[in-house]
C-alpha cells in the first residue's frame, strides 16, 4: 500500500471539506473493498477520510412507510435489525448474504453502493425497491444512480449520508453466488411496490439494471411463469472465468423466477 494521510473527521461537513478540495482523496467506509484495493495499489489516494466515527451516519430509522439506513450502517446491523426484518424482510436477508460474517461486521451500505461493483448485492435492493440515495448535497433516485461499472451519479467529493427504501407490498432477492468470493454471479431483486413491479439485476451487467419486460409481465400476473419466458440479451452482459454472458443471461431468468416464488410465500 502506498503511503497516505489519514483523516478522522467528526462530521459530514468536515469530511466534505477534506475531500472537496482534493481529487486524490478517498472516503473510507468499512474498507472491505478500499483497503484491499489500496493493498493491490489499484487505488493510491493521497488522503483517506475515514467516516467510521461520524455518529450521524450510522443507524436505521423505520417510519412513514420507509426504511432509512445510514450510510455507515454495517451489513450485519441491517441483517440483524428486527425493524428491517419486519418492514422489508428481503432487505435484511440480502444484507445477510453479503460476503461472510467478518466482512458484514465492517462493510457499509454507503461504501457498497458508492463503489457500484458489478457483483455487489446492495445495488439490486436499491434499484429493485426504487430507493432514494441521500447525499450531503441532494437526493438521487435509484434509477439515476448506477451509471456504469464502478461508476455512479455521485459528484467528486459528494458524500452519501443515507439510503431511504420505500416499504414494498412484497419483495425477495435471489442470488446465484460465486462459491469462493460470495459475490453475486447473478442476483435478482423482485418487488411489488406502491409504484408497480420492479425487477433489478446485479452481477450480470456492468452495473445493476432493471428488466422492464419482466416488470410488465409480472404487472399482468405476479407469478413465476410470467418471467419464465422472458430472456435478457447476453450482448451487454459480463463474461469472465466464472460465467459466460450467455450463462448469466440464463441465470437472470432462473433467479427472477425463484425471487417471484419467494416473494409470494
Amino acid at each position: 500500500m502506498h503511503a497516505f494521510k489519514y483523516h478522522r473527521p467528526g462530521s459530514v461537513k468536515d469530511a466534505a471539506a477534506l475531500v472537496g478540495k482534493n481529487a486524490d482523496a478517498k472516503l473510507l467506509g468499512g474498507g472491505q473493498t478500499l483497503v484491499q484495493t489500496m493493498k493491490l495499489r489499484l487505488a493510491s489516494p493521497t488522503d483517506v477520510v475515514d467516516l467510521g466515527t461520524i455518529k450521524e451516519l450510522a443507524g436505521i430509522k423505520v417510519a412513514g412507510g420507509t426504511v432509512e439506513v445510514g450510510a455507515m450502517t454495517r451489513h450485519a446491523a441491517v441483517a440483524g435489525s428486527a425493524e428491517v426484518k419486519k418492514a422489508i424482510p428481503a432487505l435484511a436477508a440480502l444484507a445477510g448474504m453479503i460476503g461472510d460474517r467478518q466482512v458484514r461486521e465492517m462493510g457499509t451500505i454507503g461504501g457498497s453502493i458508492a463503489n457500484s461493483d458489478p457483483a455487489a448485492d446492495y445495488p439490486a435492493a436499491v434499484l429493485g425497491l426504487g430507493a432514494t440515495i441521500i447525499t450531503d448535497k441532494r437526493k438521487i433516485e435509484a434509477d439515476k444512480f448506477f451509471t456504469g461499472m464502478f461508476e455512479t451519479a455521485l459528484q467528486p467529493g459528494e458524500i452519501i449520508t443515507a439510503v431511504s427504501f420505500p416499504v414494498p407490498k412484497r419483495a425477495a432477492y435471489m442470488k446465484f453466488k460465486n462459491p469462493a468470493s460470495r459475490f453475486a454471479i447473478v442476483g435478482v431483486f423482485v418487488a411489488e411496490t406502491g409504484n408497480g413491479i420492479r425487477v433489478a439485476v446485479t452481477g450480470a451487467g456492468p452495473n445493476a439494471f432493471r428488466v422492464p419486460e419482466m416488470e410488465k409481465a409480472l404487472g399482468a400476473k405476479f407469478a413465476p411463469e410470467s418471467v419464465a419466458k422472458v430472456k435478457v440479451k447476453a450482448d451487454d452482459l459480463n463474461s469472465d472465468l466464472h460465467a459466460s454472458a450467455e450463462y448469466r443471461a440464463h441465470l437472470v431468468t432462473v433467479m427472477a423466477k425463484r425471487a417471484v416464488e419467494a416473494a409470494m410465500k
Binding site: Y6, R8, L28, G30, G31, V35, D50, Q102, V103, M106
Partner: peptide, 12 residues
C-alpha cells in the same frame, strides 16, 4: 464482533 484484521487499518 469478529473482523478480518488484514482488511482494515489499525487507525480504524
Amino acid at each position: 464482533n469478529v473482523v478480518k484484521s488484514c482488511s482494515m487499518l489499525a487507525m480504524q
